[in-house]
Design a protein around this nucleic acid. Sequence first.
DNA 1: CCAGGCATTTGAACACGTTCAAAAAAGGCT
DNA 2: AGCCTTTTTTGAACGTGTTCAAATGCCTGG
Lengths: 244, 244
Amino acid sequence: MTSTNSQPDRTPAAGRPASSKSEETRARILGSALASFRTRGFHQTTMREVAVDAGVAVGAAYYYFDSKDALVMAFYERAQQEMEPLLSEALSSHDALERRLRALLEVKFDYFRANRSLLGALSAHVDPQHPLSPFSEETREIRDKDIWFFARALEGTSMRVPADLKARLPRILWMYQMGLLLFWMYDRSAEQARTRQLVDKSLAIVVSLIQFSGFPLMRPVRKRVVDLLQTVFGDEPVPARIEA
Amino acid sequence: MTSTNSQPDRTPAAGRPASSKSEETRARILGSALASFRTRGFHQTTMREVAVDAGVAVGAAYYYFDSKDALVMAFYERAQQEMEPLLSEALSSHDALERRLRALLEVKFDYFRANRSLLGALSAHVDPQHPLSPFSEETREIRDKDIWFFARALEGTSMRVPADLKARLPRILWMYQMGLLLFWMYDRSAEQARTRQLVDKSLAIVVSLIQFSGFPLMRPVRKRVVDLLQTVFGDEPVPARIEA
DNA sequence: CCAGGCATTTGAACACGTTCAAAAAAGGCT
DNA sequence: AGCCTTTTTTGAACGTGTTCAAATGCCTGG
């Protein structure tokens, strides 16, 4: 398991009662941490504060979570888990690609609205070596699950997309989404109005581009772009499906 | 002055001898720091090490540099300064846009080759609030100077570029460059072969796109893209020229 | 009911970046 | 030279994330 914390094997094993005191403590620590992150921000929040708030010693916090970052990772994991049904529902209520993509984005924005700064702590790092980077090995599982939704968004629409591009598109769309979220995180305009504009305008362009990409005239350009993507992302076009 | 360090007003003022002992100490500290950054990496390097290495107390390091980050900033400033003549020369030896852009990129890659990890410390942060972010206020001056070179790369070529796009292009090309550098920083392929491929392929595409953008057929798409850029970057198309 | 093992909890201690009050050195002025 | 201001230097101390040996609790097999 490529998980956040090492010590307690969380999956409620054989004989153990599913909801031990341990799990409760863990939850209490995570709760205190996230609350503090939200109100004071990630950097201002102290592990000692978190511990006191949860009524334990600092060491206990480190018993359940390998690091301060791991607390953010736990949030991220929980977020992905909680959003999955919402994302599925979003897809099942729309047909047109633009609508489908927009629906996915809206779920994300809604969910993260209350946690903009927390999301910032998550994605502030570009280094793929850093655990909290959206490109790190540690976040791969979550990332792959998320990319998979973009694959579904493409599958379920009637728009014809050339196969070579289609194989690459989920990952590209995921990166597009990350760009939007990034812009949104640091968007200081009132009510993040600029992000809203950006979403509207860029989404229209993205969908147009995908549409154009099928025209015979576009074939040479498309080939070159797909070749470029191959260089950047290597093989493994779409992440393997992950069973729930 | 939006400088890195606050205390000693470095510009050798009126009566003072230009190269005081102070400047030498400062240089010694910076030297020790950069050497250590290069060999041990940014994070492994300790301010105490740096101080010992430079033969001063840790307080002294903080007298000359506001923070550990400021040392990296000093490197960045020096890098920009030292590269400027090289960049000018690169531009003056080529006419075609692709050649001109490639020449700029080559100067950067050459210069940073020995300092890949240091560059990583510089650009690992996406948060525009973080001083070391390529998008921060603190790095604006350097960034603007750099963007200016892309403006010159465009000016000096015979390719016709629509005015509305041309106004936005320097910044876009700069971001394109940052993307390449980022990829390069974390490129683990032998001799960074993947980055080389990426540069070749993407550069060809970028230049083609710019060329296409002038075709009458492309006008509507271009308008939409330019409008999008306006949303993202706001006004002030190209940074004001900065006199040396 | 107890012994032994395992899970949990504790808080002191460490290494780090950074701050600061005070000491030392260096100038400048008469 | 002597005094006073400014620049430079020092190293202890602070707050942080994190580690760790030891203490405590909990449960199970006898």
